[in-house]
Write a protein that binds this DNA or RNA. Structure first.
Length: 565
RNA sequence: UGGGGUGUCGUCAAGCGGUAAGACACGGGUCUUUGGAACCCGCAUUCGCAGGUUCGAAUCCUGCCACCCCAGCCA
């Protein structure tokens, strides 16, 4: 379905190549995709998924799916189910390697006792405020906690009692004893366990202490035999802690953490928190609203897994912050759909056309190819033609500008697959609004070719008024008016939501072949764009289509350029 | 005035001492029963800036500048 993309060099591939050459991991490549089940996956996660699973595939290695579920107060099974669906939909397979950090709670706990035994961790009775105050600042070192010197046995006893549920939330934590004067704040005795009397979606009420990310992630990686632990840039500062934990503990191996720049896409947001607010505050219809950058949203919009994979490969992987143009994502779907979507005709904003010299009541059917670039590939469908048709309102102009090639008084155009027609006159209502465009057709041009060799500059799409299907069509545009809404300092990001991000057309007209369209099916509405039958609301007799992306529109560019002058 | 990163075309991004890949965008053209697609051509004498080393530097050295991240019992 998608053509193979060329493989580009990037710094992670270089690291792996070198490891392969040195035999560092005995030719093994093991990665993992480690989402926290606290939200829906978005296009930024797709970059990470494609990277981790992609690398594993390329090097004949493995990629695990591991839920980083160490904070039960934010997590839910709703999210784990959705994440698994989405990763599969994207086209990746973790086979039998589905893991949860919570599977390691007991081991993690034993390792923590080992740390205490080594004098490298202690129970701190300070309040969260006291801990914060003693942490120091970016330029000043922190102060030792009064509990830092607690004897090993006391630490062990207290930690066991923490596990046993003897203490309330927030009363104590277990901290790694590293260096309160470190210029790297992550090394100033980081908290590795906290007390939370919270029900966990997998372990239930088995635990009331939960390990922190830094402590959990490195050990989970080691337990799974991960070779290359790929994460985003903000964890660069955490790498010394990742390495410290693994150096102190008798873990099976020591994976290498590698950081890359996460994806930023123009005209949208990638923050899980803000995406949640978009949903909660009703700015969008849900996580799968086709305007959302979530993968469920993109899927409902009509984006294909192949397009998303191609996009992720094309944007590359590096360490510098970047903002990717929306056009690149759009280009990726167009490239994919251009090869796979059947071409049909649909009139989004109809205006009636009457062919005055066409016999009243007559209907004929044209066999139109679904894929004109290679007709045998997808076959034909019959398209009815009659005296009354609809064409796109914007395909007619009473006073056409210079480069306008479409219908206008006295102008002859081709009705795709049908006849040449010439506009004779228009009929208007009281308001002066055009209600009908009258034409004559040339019977000799049946099929769309003139036997006399006469050429016509414009070809427009149409549907037969009598046989067309009334449909709802949703036109989606970028969700925000600002290319980087998260970076705008002047406005709250909510003020930057594009009021025209959704236009719902309820009077669109479809050619009758579309009556059998199934939810999720993709089509190209010729000259308008790629559309998909809505996954949720499309039904036979009540068609609902979403515009995935427009076609490249040179005419609009000309119009815009003229306006700019 | 702490630490960690990053600066190569409008936007991404290769390049790893031998004389600036590619993609998107953009401009021009061919073709076209989608102003789509396809195809062709063009598009950084220059790599944040300033010095230095070298026969030779985007690549090495020195200094400077800009931007991003870090003070959760979040991940």
């Amino acid at each position: 379905m998608s053509t193979a993309e060329p493989v580009f060099s990037n710094f992670i591939r270089s690291i792996i190549d070198e490891d392969m050459a040195n035999g560092k991991w005995a030719g093994r490549v093991a990665t993992r995709f480690p989402p926290e089940p606290n939200g829906y996956l978005h296009i930024g996660h797709a970059k990470s998924i494609c990277l981790n699973f992609g690398l594993a595939n390329e090097y004949g290695g493995t990629c695990n799916l591991r839920f980083d579920d160490t904070n039960p107060s934010k997590e839910d099974v709703e999210y784990v189910d959705s994440i698994m669906d989405t990763v599969r939909w994207l086209g990746f397979d973790w086979q039998d390697r589905l893991y949860y950090a919570s599977d390691y709670f007991e081991k993690l706990y034993q390792y923590a006792e080992a740390l205490i035994q080594k004098g490298l961790a202690y129970v701190d009775d300070s309040t969260p405020e006291e801990i914060r105050a003693a942490r120091g600042t970016l330029t000043e070192p922190g102060q030792h906690s009064p509990y830092r010197g607690r004897p090993t046995q006391e630490n062990l006893d207290l930690f066991r009692r923490m596990r046993a549920g003897e203490f309330p939330d927030g009363s104590r934590v277990l901290r790694a004893k590293i260096d309160m004067a470190s210029p790297n704040i992550n090394l100033r005795d980081p908290t590795i366990y906290r007390i939370k009397h919270v029900h966990h979606h997998r372990t239930g009420d088995q635990w009331c202490i939960y390990p922190m990310y830094d402590y959990t992630h490195c050990i989970s990686d080691a337990l799974e035999g991960i070779t290359h632990s790929i994460c985003t840039l903000e964890f660069e500062d955490h790498r010394p802690l990742y390495d410290w934990c693994l150096d102190q503990l008798p873990v099976p191996c020591h994976p290498q953490q590698i950081e890359f720049a996460r994806l930023n896409l123009e005209y949208t947001l990638m923050s899980k928190r803000k995406l949640l607010l978009l949903v909660q505050e009703g700015h969008v219809a849900g996580w799968d609203d086709p305007r959302m950058p979530t993968l469920v949203g993109l899927r409902r919009r009509g984006y294909t897994p192949g397009a998303i994979r191609a996009f992720c490969e094309r944007i590359g992987v590096a360490k510098r912050d970047s903002l990717i143009p929306m056009e690149l994502l759009e280009k990726a779907v167009r490239d994919d759909l251009n090869l796979t979507a059947r071409r049909v005709m649909a009139v989004l904003d109809p205006i009636k056309v009457v062919i005055d010299n066409y016999p009243e009541g007559q209907v004929e059917h044209f066999e139109a190819p679904y894929f004109p670039d290679d007709p045998p590939a997808m076959g034909n469908r019959p398209v009815p033609f009659g005296r009354e048709l609809y064409i796109e309102r914007e395909d007619f102009m009473e006073e056409p500008p210079k480069k306008f090639w479409r219908l206008a008084p006295g102008r002859e155009v081709r009705l795709r697959w049908a006849y040449f027609v010439t506009c004779t006159h228009v009929v208007k209502d009281d308001q002066g609004r055009i209600t009908e465009v009258h034409c004559t057709y040339d019977p000799a041009t049946k099929g769309g070719d003139a036997p006399d060799g006469r050429k016509v500059k414009g070809t427009i799409h149409w549907v037969s008024a009598a046989q067309s299907l009334l449909a709802t069509v949703r036109l989606y545009d970028r969700l925000f008016t600002h290319a980087n809404p998260a970076a705008d300092k002047e406005h709250d990001w909510r003020q930057l939501i594009n009021p025209e991000s959704l236009k719902t057309l309820t009077w669109a007209r479809l050619e009758p072949s579309l009556a059998s369209a199934q939810p999720g099916e993709m089509f190209q509405f010729e000259r308008k764009g790629f559309f998909c039958a809505d996954l949720e609301e499309h039904a036979a007799g009540k068609p609902v289509f979403n515009r995935t992306v427009t076609l490249r529109d040179t005419w609009q560019k000309i119009v815009a350029a003229d306006k700019g002058k």
